[in-house]
Design a protein around this nucleic acid. Structure first.
Length: 306
DNA sequence: TCTGGGGTCCTAGGACCC
DNA sequence: TCTGGGGTCCTAGGACCC
């Protein structure tokens, strides 16, 4: 009678990485990746610390390297400023953004589109950027509470309810389809200043005083940037949270506080608020560079940089 | 989530022009 | 005089984001 076979299989944990750690003990506790250096190299092994950053075996080494850059950036940011960040990495802004919110604070999440679809299927629709409280509520009224439910929802029904454009957009969102371009610079479109009063204000004189102050603030901001605008608008909010906006567009742009205040005041008088006002604001839009300052220059840029 | 401030984008309707 | 269709600009309100 043959002896019963007993086989034990011993498998080293992240073997190559462990070997590297024996050779370089100073790397212990840090993310370590063993990989080739050629353009087609893949990751042979990643230490468990590295796996936390989304690096795994067989991943193209080139992919592991941005991840390494990111993890260094996060570490340096924390060391130099004390600010902790959450990082999401994915094929689109939507996946990256959702991933970064996933396990805040201090997370480092790497997801493909397919993984995101699966991972967030049971999450409320609200986690998708662009779906706010109102849209989430309207979806819930259709029985759609989760991202998964939105994925399965009938396209026709969504279009019927939200319109062609928004209907398609919602469905695409649920499947984490997002082709939007990454922007690092945005053109400033408007500049505004507003104030919520400690107590609702009924007195017209007091409202006018505030309007002058807000106009001066807005114009100050415009002047600092060398821009002016053609559309002057005021905004009022009443105690019941209803908002009223009134606007007027001039033939010529201005950033003169007197001129802006004068227009804001006339808009206020025309509207003639009948109830006490909770919030008052002034906005200048249809912006353009001040003529002469940078002749021939295009629209003003608001630079956003790291 | 009884609720601040500075923004962007979208929609819908009206005026006006060709 | 009545009519159609398209484009642009403007206003007002609303949803959303950080």
């Amino acid at each position: 009678m043959p002896a019963r076979r007993v086989i034990a299989h011993l498998d080293c944990d992240s073997f190559y990485a462990s070997v590297e750690l024996l050779r370089h003990p100073e790397l212990r506790g840090r993310p370590v990746v063993v990989a080739g250096s050629g353009p087609r190299a893949v990751v042979t092994t990643a230490s468990y610390e590295a796996r936390r950053f989304g690096v795994h075996s067989a991943m193209p080494a080139s992919q592991a390297r941005p991840l390494a850059v990111l993890s260094e950036l996060v570490g340096e940011l924390r060391a130099r400023t004390g600010i902790s960040v959450s990082v999401g990495v994915g094929p689109s802004r939507l996946v990256a953004k959702t991933a970064s919110d996933w396990r805040k604070p201090g997370c480092f999440a790497v997801l493909s589109r397919e993984q995101a679809c699966e991972q967030f299927a049971s999450s409320p629709t609200r986690i998708l950027q662009g779906i706010g409280p109102k849209t989430a509520e309207r979806l819930a009224a259709l029985g759609i509470e989760t991202v998964g439910a939105l994925q399965q929802a009938s396209q026709e029904r969504l279009i019927e309810r939200f319109g062609e454009r928004a209907g398609r957009w919602l469905k695409a969102r649920a499947w984490f389809h997002d082709e939007s371009e990454l922007e690092t610079e945005r053109v400033l479109k408007s500049r505004s200043s507003e104030i919520t009063f400690d107590v609702d204000v009924a007195d017209l004189r007091a409202l006018e005083q505030t309007l002058r102050r807000l106009s001066a603030e807005v114009c100050e901001g415009l002047r600092r940037r060398g821009i002016s605008g053609r559309t002057i608008a005021i905004k009022l909010r009443y105690g019941d949270w209803t908002n009223v906006t009134r606007a007027r567009t001039l033939p010529v742009a201005t950033n003169d506080p007197e001129r802006v205040a004068e227009l804001a005041l006339s808009l206020l008088r025309d509207h003639a608020p009948s109830r006490p006002v909770r919030l008052l604001g002034v906005r200048v839009a249809s912006l353009q560079s001040v003529a002469g300052e940078h002749a021939g220059e295009s629209a003003p840029q608001l630079r956003l940089s790291l």
